[in-house]
């Protein structure tokens, strides 16, 4: 992966970057705790959505020395602020760590809607979402397979949301996501490939400071089909598609054998990999750096990142969660905002 060119902003300009808004996710999970740990680790240009008294309770229990303030855009001092700002919205019932309560599900969803509205209005520079648990949201009629699809709905322009996983070593995009492996090949259409490549190319240019990004495309079959001996998808569909498809100022190459695409020397040759299925993308990104991987949604009108893990209900009450992935998500969102700002 080539070095992204971060548009170097003078320090004062970083202060003028609008704060990032952090949704609470499920308050019974590790979201509130890791948000506070991220703030303590130095990410101060963030505003936490949620109940300020609940945050105080978590901070006390986890022995985190934090001063809280209700968010006020006028007094907020960005990265120099010594208070942790909370956009106060009370929970309908007091959350209990480790035990999700459907009574709070409506507010979890409302918080996401408010966060998106705030980013779209320009009050916040990016949306960073904490983990939700779909099962409890389904009980109140949430009808989306996940965060990403819900955000695309709120964005409201009908483009496909594109999920990218990123860390300092690797950026991967699974073309198909949460479907059985048996349905992968039959579900891939040329239109998905072209729309996804377009969104990745635009995203890398706009948010990652890459003037002419290189997207490598993985094959579907072992050895990328070995000239048709191990599957026809590459020969019949993917290679002809790639031969005909061009994007301005984007280099696209492939299809490559997926098992030879992710070691260090290979990673140095491209900026992102378009993978054909979920685990083809997730195995390498998690193997290369499990704790610092970030989930990014491209194709929206705003910047959205999130940590690459779930609510961890089973461990939430221990209050010893690692905030690494959320911190990485905040840093990446900030860099993306600076790059978009500079463009």
């Amino acid at each position: 992966m080539s070095e992204p060119v971060l548009h170097q902003q003078p320090f004062t300009n970083i202060q003028t970057l609008k704060p990032l808004i952090l949704t609470p996710g499920d308050p019974a999970g590790i979201g509130p705790e890791i948000s506070l740990r991220a703030w303590l680790a130095g990410s101060h240009n963030i505003v936490l959505q949620g109940d300020i008294s609940y945050f105080r309770e978590i901070a006390d229990k986890a022995k985190l020395a934090i001063n809280f303030a209700e968010y006020d855009a006028q007094s907020f001092a960005g990265n120099r602020d010594t208070n942790c700002h909370v956009l106060h919205t009370p929970w309908p019932v007091p959350p209990k760590l480790g035990t999700p309560d459907a009574a709070n599900a409506g507010q979890i969803i409302t918080a996401i809607e408010q966060g998106v509205a705030g980013v779209k209005k320009g009050q916040f520079s990016a949306l960073v979402t904490n983990p939700i648990a779909k099962d409890s949201l389904y009980q109140v009629g949430f009808a989306y397979p996940g965060h990403t699809e819900f955000l695309a709905h709120l964005d409201g322009h009908g483009k496909r949301p594109v999920m990218m996983l990123a860390n300092a070593e690797l950026r991967v995009i699974p073309l198909t996501v949460h479907i059985p492996l048996s349905e992968v090949e039959s579900s891939i259409e040329d239109a998905d490939l072209s729309e996804t490549l377009l969104i990745i190319g635009d995203g890398l240019k706009r948010y990652f400071g890459l003037a002419r990004p290189h997207i490598a495309v993985a094959g579907l079959n072992p050895h990328a089909g070995e000239a048709g001996y191990l599957g026809r998808f590459e020969v019949d569909k993917l290679a002809p598609f790639l031969a005909d498809f061009t994007l301005e100022d984007v280099q696209i190459s492939g299809p490559y054998s997926a098992d030879s695409l992710f070691h260090k020397e290979a990673r140095d040759t491209y900026d992102a990999v378009l993978c054909m299925y979920h685990d083809q993308a997730l195995i390498p990104v998690k193997t290369v750096d499990f704790f610092n991987s970030v989930n990014v949604t491209l194709g929206l009108d705003f910047i959205r990142t999130s940590p690459d893990h779930g609510t961890a209900f089973d461990r939430a009450a221990r209050l010893n969660a690692r905030p690494d992935s959320l911190i990485a998500a905040i840093k990446l969102a900030e860099n993306m905002a600076l790059n978009a700002h500079g463009n």
């Binding site: 492996l181 997926a258 098992d259 260090k264 020397e265 685990d279 083809q280 390498p284 193997t287």
Partner: peptide, 16 residues
């Protein structure tokens, strides 16, 4: 269960 499931991880960790 399939070729690339293991080979992606192993070759990433030690291609050489």
């Amino acid at each position: 269960m399939y070729h690339d499931q293991g080979q992606i991880a192993l070759k990433l960790m030690g291609f050489d």
